[in-house]
Amino acid sequence: MDTNTEISAHILVPKHRKLSIEETNVLLEKLNISVNQLPRILQSDPAIRHLNAEPGEVICIERDSPTAGKANYYRVVING
């Protein structure tokens, strides 16, 4: 098994998904913020390495939350 699928399959790693430009715009409009105000994720993060995300793109993380069932969390990719 190659390492990427192994990391995604780990119980601690939630599902990461890259947002399209349209989705990003809808999200930022809804939250009324700029992209820099989002929490960050490093470009070299092992969980998003297979997504080939560029700095400035937004990653949607589908977390299993003990209080809300499923919860979406968003992080913006930064250099590093």
Partner: peptide, 14 residues
């Protein structure tokens, strides 16, 4: 170590 090998979200879980 979790952050380095599994990413920041896994570190948060930990």
């Amino acid at each position: 170590e979790v952050a380095k090998n599994l990413g920041i979200e896994a570190a948060r879980q930990t």
